[in-house]
Write a protein that binds this DNA or RNA. Structure first.
Length: 454
RNA sequence: GUGAUUGUAGCUCAGUUGGUUAGAGCGCUGGAUUGUGGUUCCAGAGGUCGUGGGUUCGACCCCCAUCAUUCACCCCA
């Protein structure tokens, strides 16, 4: 046998069953997006590296898939450069395109480029795959789908509310119990300010984010390693350990960071969001979580993360507000807020919990058995009629043995089989067999179609 | 990038202290049943044991290298 074929690490093929289930997820997400007034866009799989580089931090740059220039890409490189073996230096010379890493940055690029054609606030959704040169592991792929919703060009916190409503609706439609965690970058900045470590904000938030994983001691250890002074760490303790319900948490926080203007602003924002939430009907848990600190450099306000309550999995949806994302592309002072549903992780969770509905795998409803030339000629017009009536149907392409044809219907979960041989042809009818019950009866086409339309 | 794990039939996996011809279940093909599937019975096809070296009279098994896999860390959907 020839060598076994394979696909790149962290990528996947999708079988028909998997595709039907994935589409079930995409369709429900899409429907909700549309319902809230968002319009679809798409952007290319590849972007210029200049638009991608530097947007995701140092780590992010490493995880970008780069595309080699076409043609003789080494021709313009000098021998000295080659001999230098500086991969980073060289890569910018031989590669100027890369696969998109997320949908947010391409969206920002899109907005800047098409600003004249857009009406703000602009609400868009985008469902496409993204690529990261990460090491794959559980719930982590190198090619995966994100389902983004963003609204750009509006500072209103109504948008944050709307996103929570969308989260709530999507996951309740998918029958998943989730908790939505909210934090605010301004509060985090305020905290860093109060303890006099404003410039260490990223280190601090990254460390605090690991509370659940490595515990209080671990967090403190990491803070020490990041050269945060002991007094500052001591000051942080009540904040890391903050407990109570959302309003209680906000109240304590307010006292602790009373001297930080930006911190108070963040608290005011959170209070407003929670106030909005009381005015609408949101079923899922919404929880203020200070340990939530997405690493993305561009969030400036609210930060969101959604986790399944019943499955062990990283976040299945995340996002936040970014005040100046388009600034890097020369369009300052445009604020946006958005979230991204991780379709592949959502799939894994639903699969794990066995919550895929049967109808998510609906395919062919009716199979015509093929007995030979004469019978084919008899069935073809009938098949046409059935299809015109909107019933997914097919005829077995060869006059194979009954056993084979029935087996085909069976393994494809086709619920009904139409059999037409000499006696049926004579009577101008078809035998319709119910594959589940085994019952069968001779009927005319119209009767058969009638049965399906019920 | 760091640390582990596993690699045997299409799939999931057995395989004794190193010993002759490497097994099972599922799936597949054919038959029992040439107009009746999902159940049952019978038969059959299918493997350079990831790859390359080494040790040995002899290697699926031991050693080294390499590639691939999965999991964790970093980071993240």
């Amino acid at each position: 046998m020839a060598q076994k074929p394979s696909i790149p690490k962290g990528t996947r093929d999708f079988t028909p069953t998997e595709m039907n289930r994935r589409n079930y997820i995409f369709d429900t997400i899409k429907a909700v997006f549309r319902k809230y007034g968002y319009s679809p866009i798409e952007t290319p799989a590849m972007e210029n590296l200049s638009t991608l580089l530097g947007k995701y931090g140092e780590e992010g740059d490493k995880l970008l898939f780069k595309i080699l220039n076409s043609g003789d890409y080494l021709s313009k490189i000098s021998d000295e450069e080659l001999a230098g073996k500086d991969s980073n230096q060289l890569s910018t010379r031989i590669s100027e395109k890369g696969l998109r890493y997320d949908l947010t940055v391409p969206f920002a690029r899109f907005v800047v480029q098409h600003r004249n054609q857009l009406t703000f606030p602009f609400k868009r959704f985008q469902i496409q795959n993204v690529w990261r040169a990460d090491r794959p592991q559980k719930g982590r792929y190198r090619e995966f789908f994100q389902c983004d919703v963003d609204v750009i060009g509006s500072n209103s916190l109504l948008n944050e509310l709307e996103l929570v409503q969308i989260i709530d609706e999507v996951f309740s439609l998918l029958s998943l119990k989730v908790v939505t965690k909210i934090n605010n970058r301004k509060i985090l900045s305020g905290i860093a300010e109060i303890i006099g470590q404003a410039e260490k904000i990223v280190d601090i938030t990254v460390a605090i984010d690991k509370l659940e994983k490595i515990g209080l001691e671990g967090v403190n250890k990491e803070l020490t390693e990041k050269e945060i002074p002991k007094e500052a760490i001591d000051k942080l303790q009540p904040i890391i350990k903050l407990a109570g319900n959302n309003t209680e948490k906000l109240a304590t926080l307010k006292e602790v960071i009373a001297d930080s203007e930006i911190g108070l602003k963040g608290i005011a924002e959170m209070e407003q969001i929670f106030k909005y939430l009381q005015q609408v009907d949101v079923a899922c848990e919404v929880e203020l979580d200070l340990t939530l600190a997405r690493g993305l450099n561009y969030y400036t306000g609210a930060i969101f993360e959604v986790k399944s309550k019943d499955a062990e999995m990283g976040s299945i949806c995340g996002g936040g507000r970014y005040d100046d994302l388009t600034g890097i592309f020369g369009m300052p002072d445009v604020s946006g807020v958005g979230i991204s549903f991780g379709a592949d992780r959502i799939y894994d969770v639903i699969e794990q919990l066995k919550l895929f509905p049967e109808k998510a795998i609906a395919g062919t409803q009716l199979l015509f058995v093929n007995f030979g030339e004469k019978e084919e000629a008899y069935c073809l017009p009938l098949l046409e009629k059935v299809r015109k009536a909107g019933i997914s149907s097919e005829i077995y392409p060869d006059s194979a043995k009954m056993k084979k044809q029935m087996g085909y219907a069976d393994s494809n979960h086709i619920p009904f089989v139409a059999i037409a041989g000499a006696s049926e042809m004579e009577a101008g009818k078809i035998t319709l067999k119910n594959m589940e019950s085994g019952e069968q009866e001779m009927v005319v086409v119209e009767e058969m179609i009638e049965k399906f339309s019920r």
